[in-house]
Computed example of a mutant assay.
Amino acid sequence: METLTDKAPGKREARKEERRLAILEVAKRSFLESGYSGTSMSAISAELGGSKGTLWSYFPSKEELFAAVLDHATVAYRQQLSSVLQPSADLYATIVTFCHSFIGKITMEDGIRLHRLIAAEAGRFPEVGEIFFRRAPQPTQRMLADFFLHEMAAGHMREDDPLAAASVLASLCIGGLHQRVLWGIVEPTPADVEKEARYAADIFARAFDIARS
């Protein structure tokens, strides 16, 4: 029979996780609204209403907190990519789906605000750019590279460096609509995202000898 002492550790862990998620939510809002330099551990602690020691016990530095915010913001997307990047009889369709998902993600409001933050502050705070790259673009490119390695081995696309191919596809996705949204020139529509995804996928398919459906 389960006792109160059996339940206690689970409740404590749940409270810790709730507290951690609350910290990440406040930190995310602060980073996106105030930038990296304008965000302080003290201000986050004050907003949460706890002691500075509590915050530091979860995240010993602002760099680690920023990394955790990025991890939390991208974990669901990486899971989504895992389901998209599966072997299929129609590689072109898979690439279109990836491009649509990726372009949609990076042109969302939070994605645009994050890219503006990185562009504005990486020069003064190189750690910001490094943390962002290791937590966001790099994992996505590695997932793509693993997928392409399998597809190249199966003869579904031209053999090349799979990581370089992943970088090419990512670059195609961020080179058009994303740039116009980033600089405030346009507001993206679903039709815009669909058109951009098809365009990027078509160029990539021609470059790597992928049959188009």
Rank of each mutant, 00 (worst) to 15 (best):
E196M: 10
S83F: 05
K11F: 12
V168R: 12
E47F: 05
L24G: 03
Q79K: 14
T97H: 09
T189S: 07
T189W: 03
H115I: 09
E109M: 08
A201I: 03
I44E: 01
A27G: 10
E18W: 13
M108L: 05
H150Q: 14
S51I: 11
A201M: 10
A67V: 01
A207N: 15
E127H: 03
T140R: 11
L48V: 15
F102C: 00
A8I: 11
F133H: 11
D6T: 02
H72R: 06
V168A: 04
F59D: 04
T107I: 09
S45H: 11
S51W: 08
R113H: 02
Q80S: 14
L91I: 05
A165N: 01
A68Y: 00
R158H: 10
A166N: 02
A93D: 09
P139Y: 07
F125M: 08
F204V: 02
T3E: 11
V26A: 15
M41F: 07
A22C: 14
S34K: 09
E196D: 10
G111A: 08
C173M: 04
S213L: 13
S37D: 12
R19F: 08
E25R: 15
D71R: 13
T39I: 07
E196R: 12
D192T: 04
S213C: 15
H156R: 13
P9M: 05
V186Q: 02
M143C: 01
G155Y: 06
F204N: 06
M41N: 06
A67I: 00
I131G: 03
K16T: 13
G50F: 12
R20Y: 00
S171W: 05
Y92T: 08
P9N: 03
Q179C: 02
G49L: 03
S213A: 15
K52P: 03
D161S: 12
G111L: 01
Y36K: 07
L85A: 02
A145W: 00
P87N: 13
I44H: 03
Q86V: 07
I203A: 08
S30H: 07
D209S: 13
Q86T: 09
F204C: 12
V84I: 15
K16L: 14
G175L: 05
T74D: 06
A153G: 13
L169K: 09
F59K: 00
I118L: 01
D161N: 15
S42G: 06
E187I: 01
L177E: 06
S167R: 04
L70C: 06
T74C: 02
R124A: 10
V69C: 07
A119S: 14
R20P: 00
L48C: 07
T107H: 08
W56Y: 14
S61W: 01
D161W: 05
H100L: 11
L55W: 03
K52I: 11
A164R: 11
A197Q: 01
P188H: 05
A67H: 00
E194A: 11
R135H: 06
L149T: 14
Q79F: 07
E127N: 09
T107N: 11
S37Q: 15
H178C: 07
K28G: 00
S213P: 14
R212D: 05
K195Q: 14
L169Y: 12
D90K: 12
I174K: 04
A165Y: 04
R19N: 10
F31S: 09
R206N: 12
T54A: 06
K7T: 07
G155F: 05
A153Q: 09
R198A: 04
S34T: 11
S82N: 03
A67W: 00
S42R: 13
R113D: 08
